[in-house]
């Protein structure tokens, strides 16, 4: 009987297992090998030992890209999560026409990156853009957004919050799952909205917050498409360095892509990928470890 179950299990998981072997395990091994080699698609592999990893330690641009990436991880993650949670809270209110609001809130997150980058490039245009024009009406001079190294990353965070619909919808689902009875008994005790939010809502949805936190961290560690688009789009054509003003948009993944596909230093790129892998694993582990203190799993 057991053997039969094992066979069935194997059979059901076989598509995934084949995919896992071909598209995950094998490439992981290969990229580990590449990371110790000088290699590009025009040349064959030649072993260089730890040179690629030494390069990572020495190259200033790697340092810059790590700084930029951590900036996003540290600031963008909480901003998108708070934005998502706040909008979910609003969408969970009992008012008429909620489905219209839900669509409006969610739609930005499904706008393809290419289109949203384009729109934001113009929304943030320093002279004729939407935001600065509105600020102008209030007699405030807006910043140069995507042209000013101080403001480029805040611009991206703003875009991230705008497109936080994916996070929002899962929070919304979680909020709807919180048992009504909890709120009712709290009301009897005379708790206000804030009290209810802090002492009932947050603990009840803390597993989801953890899930979202981990997913967002991963997304921002791998941050690529928006920055790629905005850094390579300028008024006077493509910018091959893809780094933005004063390299303020040079994120880890962008540098990795550039090393691999612009400068064809696949060894550097593979080593960078492995370092990213280790950092992600470490941070995720750390988050899970500390999460025990603040995540409460319902008594189900």
């Amino acid at each position: 009987m057991h053997r039969k179950a094992n066979m069935t299990g194997l059979l059901f998981s076989s598509p995934f297992l084949i995919g896992f072997l071909l598209f995950t395990l094998f490439p992981i091994g290969a990229s580990l090998v590449y990371s110790f080699c000088d290699f590009n698609l025009f040349k064959s592999l030649s072993w260089v030992g730890l040179d690629n990893y030494k390069w990572i330690l020495q190259e200033k641009e790697v340092g810059k890209s790590i700084f930029n990436t951590l900036y996003m991880v540290v600031f963008a993650t909480p901003v998108t999560i708070v934005a998502g949670l706040l909008s979910a809270q609003l969408l969970n209110l009992k008012v008429k026409g909620q489905s219209v609001f839900r669509t409006l809130f969610y739609v930005p997150s499904i706008v393809p990156v290419i289109a949203s980058s384009l729109v934001w490039m113009w929304v943030l245009n320093p002279k004729s853009g939407l935001i600065n024009s509105v600020l102008q009406l209030l007699h405030i001079r807006g910043p140069n957004w995507l042209l000013d190294p101080v403001w480029t990353k805040p611009s991206l965070i703003l875009m991230g919050a705008w497109g936080s619909g994916g996070i929002m919808i899962i929070f919304l689902a979680a909020l709807q799952d919180v048992p009504k009875s909890l709120y009712e008994s709290a009301e009897i005790d005379g708790a206000g909205s804030l009290r209810k939010f802090v002492s009932i809502t947050l603990p009840s949805i803390s597993p989801i917050i953890l899930f979202q936190l981990v997913m967002s961290l991963i997304v921002y560690f791998q941050y690529f498409a928006q920055a790629f688009m905005l850094a390579s789009l300028t008024n006077s054509g493509a910018d091959q360095s893809m780094a933005g003003p004063e390299k303020s948009l040079l994120f880890y993944s962008i540098l990795l892509y550039r090393e691999a596909f612009v400068d064809f230093r696949m060894g550097h790129a593979s080593a960078m990928a492995w370092v990213l892998f280790l950092i992600t694993a470490l941070v995720t582990w750390f988050v899970f470890k500390t999460s025990k203190k603040w995540v409460t799993y319902g008594g189900e």
């Binding site: 245009n125 320093p126 002279k127 004729s128 140069n144 042209l147 000013d148 008024n235 006077s236 054509g237």
Partner: peptide
Amino acid sequence: KQIQATGKW
């Protein structure tokens, strides 16, 4: 920079 962002080359 603001001028650099106006108009297209």
